[in-house]
């Protein structure tokens, strides 16, 4: 009797969460798969058109441009914030004077809403009155500052800088936690063996931080694939789609051009790419699980 009750109990606890989750997250996900096979325009009822949307995607230049931009975003995200965050964590792991203030300065951007970050940076990048160009011109470095958000070659990078500005604090937090969990005896032992600081870092610390690094990388990848708000607020993907990313392109297709079916197919592609990394993450979690 007790056995039976206990078998039945976990489902009781899980019932509400699972129902909510199925209805609001899993169900809609599958519905998106279905929509991607239709030509739904948001008004009339969706008509099944097979894989036409996907065929069109393969000839859509803007789609590939957005995909490339996502990859650029990804490449910057797995390098710059990771290196910077790790370096900051290494520095701040010691008792630096003013440690709290420094940490806070790097955490702050994380707390701001994306919309707010976008607005603030939009003002910094303002070609005429903005701070960056005012400084550049004021110091006589250039005669006329560049149009950070209007130049096709600069727009995407200008946005990525904002994203990096937000991300560094996060990576730093993760590495700080990782460093705290390392037993200092390992480092002492290495020092006694005559290793210099760099060697200790390379041969001892980095391998020990490996689990954190995997998490950091996966989170960076996922975040760069999900990028939306900053682009939407700062350039809307412009000029001439040069800063478009998949999520933004999908949004524009769905709500600007009302091609909901097509938008859904972009969403599915985005999902499939993410899935690879979600599996890597799950695999990591699984390994932790097996340690139990």
């Amino acid at each position: 009797m007790v056995r039976l009750r206990r078998n039945f109990l976990p489902y009781l606890f899980l019932a509400i969460p699972i129902i909510i989750y199925l209805v609001w997250v899993i169900g809609p996900m599958f519905y998106t798969f279905y929509l991607s096979l239709t030509n739904w325009d948001g008004l009339s009822s969706p008509q099944f058109i097979g894989f036409r949307n996907y065929e069109r995607l393969f000839t859509d230049r803007v789609f590939f441009l957005s995909l490339t931009n996502n990859m650029k975003w990804l490449a910057s995200f797995v390098t710059v914030p990771v290196v910077l965050g790790l370096a900051l964590a290494m520095i701040l792991n010691r008792a630096v004077p003013g440690e709290k203030f420094f940490k806070m300065s790097f955490y702050m951007p994380m707390v701001l809403a994306m919309v707010v970050s976008g607005l603030i940076w939009g003002w910094l990048y303002h070609p005429r009155g903005g701070l960056i160009n005012s400084v550049l011109v004021g110091l006589g470095i250039v005669e006329k500052g560049p149009g950070w958000l209007s130049d096709r070659d600069l727009a995407l990078w200008s946005i990525i800088i904002v994203a990096i500005w937000r991300q560094v604090g996060y990576v730093m937090v993760l590495y700080l936690a990782g460093l705290k969990s390392i037993n200092p005896e390992y480092l002492e032992a290495a020092k006694i063996d005559g290793a210099n600081d760099w060697q200790v870092f390379r041969k001892v610390l980095l391998p020990l931080l490996m689990p954190v690094s995997v998490i950091v990388l996966v989170i960076s990848v996922i975040d760069s694939l999900r990028a939306f708000d900053l682009v939407s607020v700062m350039t809307r993907g412009g000029p001439a789609n040069s800063s478009s990313v998949l999520a933004n392109y999908m949004y524009i297709q769905a709500f600007n051009n009302y091609r909901m079916g097509y938008a859904a197919s972009i969403a599915v592609i985005l999902f499939l790419i993410s899935l690879v990394f979600i599996f890597i993450y799950l695999w990591r979690v699984m390994q932790d699980e097996l340690e139990y």
């Binding site: 990048y125 303002h126 070609p127 005429r128 006329k144 209007s150 727009a155 000029p239 001439a240």
Partner: peptide, 15 residues
């Protein structure tokens, strides 16, 4: 105007 794409129509009013 240079950098037209940086402005909305009303921001472009400024100059």
């Amino acid at each position: 105007i240079e950098d037209a794409a940086a402005y909305t129509w009303s921001e472009a009013l400024e100059p």
